[in-house]
Nucleic acid binder design. Sequence first.
DNA 1: GCAATTTTGGCAACCGGTTGACAAGAGCGG
DNA 2: CCGCTCTTGTCAACCGGTTGCCAAAATTGC
Lengths: 356, 356
Amino acid sequence: MTEPKIHSPATPEAAKKQPRDGKGNATIYDIAKVAGVNPSTVSRALSKPGRVSAKTQKLIQDAAAELNYQVNPFARALPTGRTNTFGLIVADITNPTFFDIIRGAQTTGTLRDYTLVLAESAESAATELTAARRMMATADGLILASPRMDDDDIRALARDKPVVVINREVEGVPSVIPDVRKGIGEAVRSLAANGHKRIAFVAGPAQSWMSARRWEGFESACEWSRLEAVRVESTKPTVDGGRQVARDVLSTGATAVLAYNDLLAIGLMQELQAGGMAVPDQISIVGFDDIFGADFTTPPLTTVRSPLGECGAGAAARLLDLLQGKGNAEPEGTLQMETELVLRGSSGRLLAAGQR
Amino acid sequence: MTEPKIHSPATPEAAKKQPRDGKGNATIYDIAKVAGVNPSTVSRALSKPGRVSAKTQKLIQDAAAELNYQVNPFARALPTGRTNTFGLIVADITNPTFFDIIRGAQTTGTLRDYTLVLAESAESAATELTAARRMMATADGLILASPRMDDDDIRALARDKPVVVINREVEGVPSVIPDVRKGIGEAVRSLAANGHKRIAFVAGPAQSWMSARRWEGFESACEWSRLEAVRVESTKPTVDGGRQVARDVLSTGATAVLAYNDLLAIGLMQELQAGGMAVPDQISIVGFDDIFGADFTTPPLTTVRSPLGECGAGAAARLLDLLQGKGNAEPEGTLQMETELVLRGSSGRLLAAGQR
DNA sequence: GCAATTTTGGCAACCGGTTGACAAGAGCGG
DNA sequence: CCGCTCTTGTCAACCGGTTGCCAAAATTGC
């Protein structure tokens, strides 16, 4: 009497189920029937090139085309564990630094037939770890861009599946980082050539690995050029943070500034200009990263370009090599990307006060 | 005698397999063994609240916690077809318009325990369709941001699984669009109040649905304010495209411009300023979208803000409602988001040539 | 205290591929 | 023409959950 199987087509349930039963979901069993072979033969024909004879291969491919078959990724993933998917975790999707990284990773991923899954950690090490764990379950590998978590946590993840880190070096885990020395060297020499004697570095977050590297590079470049390097701390690496740090920068008496990133540089420039300072006539400003919009400012921002897109692409390539068994030769080690100075209008010669 | 199961740990194969066999992959069978119940009971306890008694529930949950079990998403997806995943396809990851959309979608997705999968169509309708098809196989639903493909293609996709469209209206498919009228009305009235008589609209791509809407809104707002509206075509909706169109804009004799998007506006402003024009003294420029960086320019760009983040979030919420069976009341129809004028420095009163 | 009813847990089939083992068939030399 | 090797297709088990059906157990009513 009870008839639990009735699908009254009006219910949302029925509507939801429809697609799966409908068309477009041919299985290897359907193909096998059409081609008159065994399902496993179909499986081999479709994924192990050369394992079946040329003529059954063709037979099967035709049948597959006719039914417009596509593999069910889950069915494939279940026994193999491979998903043709990789994860990318960024600290903050809002932060333009990551845009290019995402794009680079996405592009090379697609090129090599991998799908990108994106997650955000909201700048929290805990959230980041959670997200990473979750991704590990579904993705074949993971890219961590500027991770906030411990080295140990990263290594633990890397023990499960291939992991590539961007913007940080972790012992035993392959990484892709921009080599800041060249770019910073160019920036500092350029400032020195323009007559600056004391230049300030506006630091990023205290726990940022990258900020530490940039400060190191800055210090040694200044030493080399016999300039006085002073360090100013910022509250947060954003436009707003740049605004807030303007007063501190001025009080150092520096005539040029290298900021930890472009956002800080832009905020700083805005605030200084609002206070009547002329850029670059009274103070030179150099940013870092060459993010989208760095050339929207007036004057356009001089900046040390990090090849973010290439970092993303490089990390993806690295990861995919690992996944596909290539590049076993050097499973770890650091891939250094070159940085370079992009000279625009916000840096230049200091004009004496009288010359204004 | 034959021992086919031997894993020689030295081979890369073994290394690859390791993670799956290692720790961290407890199954419901393991839990069942520990808790002394049947696997199916475990399955029920974990996914059908209330289906098993409170005390076995607890028993099972403890066992699960102890083994730190996590479901294998593929195993779950295989019989059910549900993946707790949704796709987002954008035309161009480079385009900052989409950044906020991505972020909005990602955020609400994560909040509701769904994972975002991102794809890019490279502005090509064909690529877009391919990507969409591929996603359909793995995702529970799809968000199309500013899709380039035919209405028919979109409807075809929507027949398979829930689809939500952003920045376009497609009969029979739910969509989220910014209602441009309010924002454009404010912009045009503001320009009118500043004494402008003839204003130009720099159009976007010819096939863009959104560009057509913006032009319509512009025309009718101009009519309402008794201003003369002229239309200028652009080659591409980028900073570069904006530069290229500067000459055409000037030749219309318009004293104010509304651009299809901020990139065009920024390029236009750069080129005009490079040619010696003062903004806004000689020409007012208004952009569209309020993208990241719109306030980096000098003067900062006046723009009609599209609530892109909210569009992304709204579309995700809509889609997830659909997936979770909520909101059946209005499975289709358009969700309109309000636009508003963000008045910054690039628009204002026209100064007579003599007043310069 | 017993029958009727509702809970609760177990069994087994299934989702759609993959893969090791094996046997039938093809190709070959002698 | 026979026996050998190599290729090619089939069988069956498996990945890890989900779910319909049924029966045992617990609860309820009288």
